[in-house]
Structures are given as structure tokens and as C-alpha cells.
């Protein structure tokens, strides 16, 4: 089903950011994407802030999946 496919895709993309497979993405991980993605460090920071719902400085797979679902215009329960 669609939600599961999206959740799986979100997981794949999450792993691109969480290269050490810690289970979360921190600001430092995000800044490492500078050079890999056509975004400025400021934009990466902005992305991090908007995905980090509770603002605790750690981006979980759940938060990431929600953000990805929102980007696709869907509500996804991981």
C-alpha cells in the first residue's frame, strides 16, 4: 500500500542523512549534505528546523517520514 511505500522511501532517504545509522539525524549530519545536495548550509539548517518538530535537535525517522509525507501531500503514520 501507498503509505508503506512512502514510509520505506522515507527510510531510504533518512539513511542518506544518517550515514552512521545512529537512528537520528543531528545538525552536523545535515551540514555534511552540503556539497552533496544543491542546498546552501542555511537552507539545510532551515530544512532541519522545519523537520525537527519538537525542536530537540534530533531528527528521528518518524519526524523525517512525516515531513516527507507532507512534502508529498500525504499524511503518513510511520
Amino acid at each position: 500500500d501507498m503509505k508503506r511505500i512512502i514510509a520505506e522511501k522515507a527510510r531510504e532517504l533518512f539513511i542518506c542523512c544518517d550515514k552512521e545509522e545512529k537512528g537520528f539525524v543531528c545538525r552536523r549530519d545535515m551540514q555534511r549534505l552540503d556539497g552533496e545536495l544543491p542546498l546552501t548550509p542555511e537552507q539545510l539548517e532551515e530544512v532541519f528546523d522545519s523537520l525537527d518538530d519538537d525542536g530537540n535537535g534530533f531528527l528521528t525517522l518518524e519526524e523525517f517520514t512525516e515531513g516527507f509525507g507532507g512534502f508529498l501531500g500525504l499524511n503518513v503514520d510511520p
Partner: peptide, 28 residues
């Protein structure tokens, strides 16, 4: 889309981020 330009909407930046990640994953 305005993503990538200064003053782009937050939504645009997010879309740019996910699009870039997706094309990085599926690209060559």
C-alpha cells in the same frame, strides 16, 4: 519553483531538499 533563491518559502526549500535526495538516490 523559487527553491534555491534567497527568500524562498520554507516549503520550497523542503521540496528542494527531498527532490534532491530522491534524485541522488535514483540518479546515476
Amino acid at each position: 519553483m523559487d527553491a534555491g533563491k534567497p527568500g524562498a518559502t520554507n516549503e520550497g526549500v523542503l521540496a528542494n531538499f527531498f527532490n534532491s535526495l530522491l534524485s541522488k538516490k535514483s540518479g546515476p
